[in-house]
């Protein structure tokens, strides 16, 4: 065997465990989800093909799907702008290495090591009418009749759920900060020699050079909204009424009602939306182009 073939063989052998894992834990479940989305399946008996019934039920049974799509659109817009914007802003501030920046970076990380479920429960207390800090603060500063039932009124429930994740943008911050730190020193030096001021360096050099990282942040943030479950299920449960419903909750309802075909049709919709988001954002941010 010549050396070239020997190298290829070793590459193939070393890739085999990863490919095996990918097939077992990624591809097979995705294919199963996709296929069983076209079946009637209670999880115990064999799935029975029922065509597009699950999708028709999902989309047209009542207004839940439309409300879920509306909520996803709004949450995605907020995630791509305010959430990512906040993360990027913090990254740019930390990049300047102000006093205590390491402490801030560490502190900013803390919410991410606490489970989302725990946060959701904490937020139920924060927004509680009797003992919650928000309502008590409002009453303390003079709004004595402030009794918003945050997770049980519209549109307060949507706002309250949004606030449970809006400012936890540390992943975006870390990605962007890492990219900022990777910008060669020479680029900045050349700009300064040409007379650029701090704002111009940020606007015309740093921002364009980290746009790929910002794009990654946008993808991660939007896909997190597509899959957002605990924040809704453990607080408003999609209510009041259907006002804060989302697709993961529809999937969950399918599961608790032993309608796995229906649940998997919802999962398929989530996967498709996720892939579309990745394609669109990649193109918008020209993430596949070389920067340097």
């Amino acid at each position: 065997m010549n050396k070239k073939w020997s190298t290829k063989l070793w590459i193939a052998i070393f890739l085999a465990p990863t490919i095996l894992m990918f097939l077992m834990f990624n591809l097979t479940p995705i294919v199963t989800v996709f296929v069983t989305g076209f079946t009637e399946w209670n999880g115990f008996s064999s799935p029975k093909f029922n065509g597009l019934d699950n999708y028709i039920n999902l989309v047209s049974y009542d207004d839940t799907f439309l409300i879920s799509l509306r909520n996803l659109f709004l949450w995605s817009a907020i995630a791509a702008t305010l959430h990512v914007g906040f993360g990027v802003l913090v990254a740019f501030i930390l990049y300047k290495r102000p006093f205590g920046w390491r402490v801030v970076r560490g502190t900013f990380m803390i919410p991410n090591v606490i489970s989302v479920a725990a946060w959701a429960i904490i937020y139920k207390f924060i927004f509680n009418d009797d003992i919650g800090v928000i309502n008590n603060f409002m009453r303390d500063i003079g709004f004595s009749d402030f009794h918003v039932k945050w997770f049980y009124e519209s549109p307060a429930a949507f706002i309250a759920i949004t606030l449970t994740w809006l400012f936890y943008a540390v992943i975006v911050t870390l990605i962007v900060l890492n990219e900022l730190m990777a910008i060669p020193k020479e680029v900045h030096e050349a700009a300064l020699l040409d007379g650029a001021n701090g704002w111009q360096v940020t606007r015309y050099i740093n921002l364009p050079l980290v746009k790929g990282a910002i794009g990654t942040g946008v993808i991660l943030s939007i896909t997190a909204r597509i899959a957002m479950f605990e924040e809704v299920a453990l607080t408003s449960r999609g209510g009041p009424g259907n006002d804060t419903y989302n697709i993961p909750l529809m999937l969950y309802n399918g599961i608790v009602n032993s309608e796995y075909g229906y649940a998997n049709s919802a999962a398929t919709v989530m996967i498709i939306i996720g892939v579309l988001v990745m394609i669109v954002v990649s193109r918008l941010f020209k993430m596949n182009e070389k920067i340097y």
Binding site: E153, S154, R237, G239, P240, N253
Partner: peptide, 21 residues
């Protein structure tokens, strides 16, 4: 059914109580 007893009744109740429904 479980869906009503466990989730939906409580979820829609605020709308009834507030007069939205």
């Amino acid at each position: 059914p479980e869906q009503i007893a466990g989730t939906e009744f409580g979820k829609f109740l605020p709308l009834l109580a507030k007069g939205t429904l």
